[in-house]
Design a protein around this nucleic acid. Sequence first.
DNA 1: CTAACTGCAAAAACTTTGCACTTTT
DNA 2: AAAAGTGCAAAGTTTTTGCAGTTAG
Lengths: 145, 145
Amino acid sequence: MPDPKVRFDELITTLRERDFRLTPQRVELVRLIAASEGHPSAAQLYAKIRTQFPTMSQATVYKTLALLKEMNQVLEIDLRDDSHYDGNRPHPHPHLICMQCNKIEDGDLELDPPSIKRLEKTSGYQIVRPQLLFYGLCPDCRKSG
Amino acid sequence: MPDPKVRFDELITTLRERDFRLTPQRVELVRLIAASEGHPSAAQLYAKIRTQFPTMSQATVYKTLALLKEMNQVLEIDLRDDSHYDGNRPHPHPHLICMQCNKIEDGDLELDPPSIKRLEKTSGYQIVRPQLLFYGLCPDCRKSG
DNA sequence: CTAACTGCAAAAACTTTGCACTTTT
DNA sequence: AAAAGTGCAAAGTTTTTGCAGTTAG
């Protein structure tokens, strides 16, 4: 994980470059995203922001996330129930998801480029964004289950 | 793709073994699932069934799909907007999804067991169900886009 | 006959949208 | 001052749930 301060500056710079306005709400969300260890959901981000900005609405959270996503600065992990976001490693990468407690961890697995190339060749698809999700049981839930 | 008739019989047998009742609605859904080439959504299955059973409800479709899923006879591909189902290859396998026309194709890619083992070891997770989605552009949309 | 299933409508849950008001630049 | 963003509430989607009536075994 990159230094939160550095990542924050990166994100702010990117927003400024694209002439998006730096409202306090937006800056705070960026700060949270840059500092977040895990993979927060929109609801979790909203809850945190509310402590600082009691008037902030969910709509604004979603709109800002859409913005960052569109700039490829945030990776969306779209689960069935709700989306989670990774603002520190925006490049697609695998995730492990606990089916019991819903914990999400980064997965340490790299598809080798030749496989992907072959997949593109045999299918004719141009692959833009792989999403590799591994549903299972996290260490804690394995024990207690 | 297995022979639809054979697959149909398999599914019916499995249902019977587990003492689930063979209602006409259920049988028809199984027939459709066994004969479907692609990866229909609940809504698409519902629409097709309605031509035969005008009174059939979406609830019943979902309940039956849940049943088949629970018996591991149908693979659910859960996309953000809606789930699609594969009743012919119930074992998890990769899918290519067109971001423009939403076409879904089976992907010809096999994760090698050692990689998965390593992923389990480094993460501590016990992997139950991998879901590999490759979002991109299908051949048709590449041309027209 | 009885346990299971169907179908309707309502509920749930996340996300998007419309619009008036406010704020950044 | 103008364009962009916020926040509220309402709408939109897919899927689930409760329950009375129906049906398979």
